[in-house]
Amino acid sequence: MRAPLAIYLEVIENYNKSGTILRHTQVIREYLNIKPDGSDARHLIVISIGAAARTKDEPSDLINVAIEELIRQQYELQQDNTYTSWNFLKQDPGTPTITHLKDLVNYLTWLSLQNVGIEVLSNIPDIKIKQFAAEANTLNAAQMKALEPNK
């Protein structure tokens, strides 16, 4: 006889909250020789994307390079989006209302406190910097507004 769906969901929820899932996860990692996600994996992501960015432009290509490198070095892949800082960094400032302008000022203040100097550009090839500058110079405000959101 099958258990009703509610009982099944309760069992799964209790399992997910228990210490058993942590022990099972550890045993599976050891059996498959998989390293858990952590600071070493994040460092590997930064290094692999940094190297790939010298020749690739598309974010999807950069993400694929990072995923391939994580898999190659046997790191566990995250099942959810834990990289919310990047999402925060790339947010559009919104319409020019007082509230959005205040948010933009707060954002720019936060950004200036991140202490990122010009030296972060030192490893970017000159041709990429020129490409970025050319893209920025070719669009005026009206053209930028006409761009599709995913660009």
Rank of each mutant, 00 (worst) to 15 (best):
V46M: 08
K90Y: 05
I34F: 00
D37S: 15
L44Q: 03
Y83A: 15
T109I: 10
Y8P: 03
V27Q: 12
P59F: 03
I124V: 15
G50H: 01
K151P: 00
A51S: 12
V116M: 11
Q79V: 14
T99V: 11
P149G: 02
V105R: 15
T109S: 12
K151S: 09
L44N: 03
A142T: 09
A133E: 10
N150Q: 13
Q114N: 10
Y15V: 08
P96A: 04
A146Y: 00
Q131D: 13
D103W: 03
L121I: 02
I118G: 06
Y8G: 15
N64C: 03
D40Y: 02
A134T: 09
A52L: 02
K17S: 10
L147G: 02
Y8S: 15
R42F: 02
R2C: 04
I98T: 14
S60T: 06
T55D: 13
D57S: 11
N137D: 08
T97M: 02
Q26H: 14
N150M: 06
S112M: 08
I71W: 00
R2W: 05
T138W: 02
A3I: 11
D80S: 09
V116H: 06
N137S: 09
L104F: 13
I7N: 12
A3T: 08
I127Y: 12
I98E: 09
Q143M: 07
T97E: 07
D57C: 08
R72G: 08
L104C: 11
I118Y: 09
E148F: 02
I118E: 13
T95Y: 07
Y83L: 09
N140V: 01
Q91I: 03
N123H: 06
V120A: 14
I7K: 04
I118T: 14
A41C: 05
M1A: 15
V65Y: 02
L89Y: 03
S48C: 02
T20H: 13
E10G: 12
K90S: 09
